[in-house]
Amino acid sequence: MALDKATVKAIAFLARIKVPEEDLEHLAGEMSNILGWVEQLGEVDTSGVEPMTGGAETTLPQREDSVTDGDARDQVLANAPEPEDGFYAVPKVLE
């Protein structure tokens, strides 16, 4: 799969990463190479094979649906770049 500049630009927007225009060409080449290389997986017959979706064959544990944590607003905000009045401040979202 060869990716073009426009596709890389679209993926970069999906990932919310600003990529300078002059990097797009090179990045498209690198990503195309990597995708071309992983396409060898097409040689493997996986019909009837279940996907492995986790790191171990375990069933996830369940616990009672109750609050076990919380009341830590100041700790949560301690590393925020722009905390304000106990909230995270962000650029205006609604006009």
């Binding site: 927007f13 990463i17 590393n79 925020a80 770049p81 650029p91 205006k92 979202v93």
Partner: peptide, 17 residues
């Protein structure tokens, strides 16, 4: 928003990017 580096932008999306 929550920790680490922040580079401002004109909109929320631009700030993320």
């Amino acid at each position: 928003v929550r920790y680490g580096l922040r580079i401002d932008g004109g909109s929320l999306d631009e700030m993320y990017e």
